[in-house]
């Protein structure tokens, strides 16, 4: 029986990982779009992305588009794997296979 991933389980981090995981591999989302999708504030979103990055679940790429800084967040292979396991565990709980 698998355990829930404590890093992903937090609601905002779950939404971040769900959005990134729905994209094709190696495709990321800009910080502004992620903020709009999740409804989080700048500070809150930044802190949770940092937690995910420290765990190796997302890669953060900072670049300049023209003169504007742009941060792009992409799910790593480890992050995609952890998310898939987390979802499988949730489904097992619903199916009654986990206590």
């Amino acid at each position: 029986m698998a355990d829930l991933d404590e890093i992903i389980h937090q609601p905002l981090r779950l939404r971040i990982m769900a959005a990134l995981n729905a994209l094709p591999v190696s495709t990321g989302l800009e910080f502004a779009r992620l903020k709009k999708l999740t409804g989080a504030t700048d500070g809150n979103l930044g802190a949770h992305i940092e937690t995910l990055a420290r765990a190796g679940y997302v890669a953060v790429d900072k670049a300049f588009v023209g003169k504007k800084p742009q941060t792009t967040v992409t799910a790593t292979a480890a992050g995609r794997g952890a998310f898939a396991r987390h979802v499988a565990t949730l489904q097992e709980i619903i199916a009654g296979k986990q206590p």
């Binding site: 939404r15 769900a18 959005a19 729905a22």
Partner: peptide, 15 residues
């Protein structure tokens, strides 16, 4: 667990 999965479905739909 069901609420968490609904949350995932919702964000994927919005994306």
């Amino acid at each position: 667990a069901s609420a968490a999965l609904n949350d995932i479905n919702d964000i994927v739909h919005r994306l």
